[in-house]
Design a protein around this nucleic acid. Structure first.
Lengths: 220, 220
DNA sequence: AAAGAATTGTTGCATTTGCAACAAAGGAGT
DNA sequence: ACTCCTTTGTTGCAAATGCAACAATTCTTT
């Protein structure tokens, strides 16, 4: 477990926890490491999960199969990422997603009951942990709200302008670089790439913005 | 405050708390009631909020103004509803929404620091409260995930089928009543009502489903 | 420099969509 | 039954979109 501490410390779950305290904390929490091989199923959709997972080594994907059996990749997990936290905290009966190892990897599992429970020795730590976990879930909440605002737009043009002006506002500049390639942006906005490209150049022609690669300028 | 206890008890924040304990708990939490008149601003977008609110009397709306100054109603609040919890738990700098009283109403405000903090007397209560608050935020998370799956569909037909089969699966029947009128459903799916109506009858013609008013039947 | 791969832009076309206007059906109250 | 109002369905049309195929550009590697 020792080699995991440096990585766990980077996880948002342990923000504000001293490295010295982390080891004692982990054993108090009943944290357990488990290894997975490439393509192993880490979490199977339809099962009940009661521990949150932290990926400490390797890479994994959160996936979901739809009715026709198409597998969609919902997100990529990398070192220090937390997963399954919302389903665990909600106490939901079944998790609807599958987590799959894309490389050999190691997961540290922490029982939720131990996080929210109190223990005689480290009560102060629990408070930090609980607050961190709540913050992680709440931040996702806010990000999803933003994304839903974008997805609720009826036209691609509106989606683009909403995304770009949100981004511009967030960074406080009207010239900025977005963290997406065209393909990724189209994915994010749930639109066709070529149709999006078309709308982008239309918006440029109409004088709303300018761009080069992933650098954008918004006018007025 | 006494007259609020029965209502607060119905709030998801106090699930599992005995009515007897609630009064002591509230004073320990530093809960404070505040009255608002119709059209009063309860939370102003752009300010920082550090307390969660529980509506104990009256009705209110969560709204958001876009760049052009159009006010969108994000949700309606009614008795015992919790609000602002995600922004408070995330510790976000500024809340992006405005909450407005649509009738005369009373709000009980509870400082977040008191919820996650510990106190000597009622430590066990805090645990329940923290767990409840986490659950509320996590459940919203899950619901938003479901909704994003729907909004990510490219066509109205797909949106409809995804929504309806999700709903069917949730209630475990292929004949069910949805809690939306056509207008509300179109709103929820972010599509035009008449275009949705068109797609619905097309889906019926193609034999995927049948419906009458808000009762639907899914085939196969 | 040349070749190859990946990213981005463009365009034609059939389909879908929003929008507006109107028709039909259903409900509530008189 | 009758009116009024709300909800739901239908349709024409211009605009937007997905899709496919291809062109242009940029980046990497040799």
């Amino acid at each position: 477990m020792k080699q995991n501490i440096k990585i766990l410390k980077q996880s948002s779950l342990f923000q504000g926890v001293e490295e010295n305290d982390l080891e004692a904390m982990l054993s108090c929490l009943g944290a357990a490491e488990r290894k997975y091989r490439k393509n192993d199923v880490i979490v199977l959709a339809g099962t009940k999960v009661t521990s949150v997972g932290v990926l400490v080594e390797g890479n994994a994907q959160i996936t979901r199969d739809d009715a026709e059996g198409n597998r969609a990749i919902l997100s990529e997990l990398e070192k220090a990422d937390l997963f399954a936290e919302a389903y665990v905290a909600a106490g939901s009966a079944e998790i609807p997603v599958t987590v799959i190892a894309t490389t050999e990897c190691r997961i540290v599992w922490i029982p939720f009951s131990k996080i929210v429970g109190t223990c005689s020795s480290a009560c102060g730590f629990h408070r930090i942990l609980v607050q961190n976990m709540m913050r992680v879930i709440a931040v996702k909440n806010i990000m999803m709200n933003e994304k839903m605002r974008i997805l609720s737009c009826k036209t691609t043009k509106e989606k683009l302008m909403t995304y770009l002006s949100d981004y511009s506002e967030r960074v406080g500049k009207n010239r900025f670089k977005i963290p997406f390639s065209r393909n990724e942006l189209a994915d994010f906005l749930s639109v066709d790439r070529s149709a999006m490209s078309r709308e982008l150049s239309r918006l440029r022609d109409e004088g709303y913005l300018d761009y080069h690669k992933n650098e954008f300028v918004l006018f007025q």
